[in-house]
Amino acid sequence: MENPLMTTAYLLHLATESGGILYIMAFLLTVALGVIIERSWFLGRLIRKGDMLLGELSRLRHLDPSAIRELKDRAVDDPHGEILAVPLDFPEISDPHRLSELLEEAILAQAPHIDRRMWMLDTIVTLAPLLGLLGTIIGMFNSFEVLGKPGSAPTEITSGIAEALVATACGLFIAIVGLVFFNGLNNAVRLVIHQLDRIKVTLVNRMDAPRHAVQAHASVASAPLHGLTTAAAKG
């Protein structure tokens, strides 16, 4: 059975041969995994909560402040809750266009919180292969130094080249894993933004419908009176 100490010593040897690049790549992998885990949990929770809120909002027939406040309380400190707070904070707004602008302003304010730390994962995906290539080049320099030593065996050169390629392999591995999760998390961010846009449109529509209903009712109610007035004028 392989001795764990020998394995640790060999890994330390590889890191030294790469000029310390493998230490940096181990740090980048740790950061990438931390961002992936935290963002996956955060965005997954937002998506589930957004689906629940949209289902509740779609059952409303008008902009009911008490119902909106109840939904907002379920999404405290979340982007969805900040959007639902807009019609409650501005109850005097009666223009749907003005309400839509206020909701759009709230969405723009929440966007940086939704894709927070995504730039770190994007940077690691780009940086890891470059660092791996740099580590390989440094390892190749160390390997070719053997040629200047008298009596050097060819196996020393080939083994050194093989060890130098470990840095490139590690960089590609980090980049591949990071890219897969980066694209998936970007898709989750777009889905959350889409949910916020749907909440905005739903709130505006629920506000606009009652006003048109009142206007239509007023028009119907005034029609007989207008007819009587016209008949009286003709008489």
Rank of each mutant, 00 (worst) to 15 (best):
T155M: 12
M118A: 09
V214E: 07
G132Q: 02
L130K: 05
P91S: 06
A153R: 10
H80S: 14
A26V: 11
P87F: 04
L33T: 14
N187Y: 07
I47Y: 00
V166C: 02
V201I: 14
R45N: 06
L147W: 14
L12H: 07
G139V: 12
E156Q: 15
V189Y: 04
K200Y: 08
G148H: 11
L28F: 10
A75N: 15
V192M: 06
P154G: 13
I83A: 06
R211P: 07
A175Y: 02
M25E: 13
A109W: 01
N142H: 15
A209K: 14
S40L: 13
P112W: 07
E101S: 09
I124E: 04
R39E: 00
M207K: 11
A75G: 15
L103A: 05
A153G: 07
L28Q: 06
A221D: 12
D73F: 00
G81E: 11
T123Q: 04
I47Q: 00
L88K: 08
R61H: 08
T230Q: 10
I47N: 00
L53A: 02
R116Y: 04
R48C: 06
S18E: 06
L14W: 08
W119Q: 11
E104I: 01
L165A: 15
A128S: 11
A85D: 12
A209F: 08
I68F: 03
L88D: 11
T168G: 03
E17A: 02
A169G: 10
L99N: 00
R98P: 03
A9Y: 03
M1P: 07
T155K: 09
K234I: 14
A188K: 05
P224F: 01
T155L: 13
A109Y: 01
A32L: 15
S100D: 13
S100K: 12
L108N: 11
W119M: 05
G235R: 15
M52Y: 08
L179H: 06
T136Y: 02
E70T: 08
G34I: 02
I193R: 01
M52G: 12
L29I: 06
I93W: 01
G81Y: 05
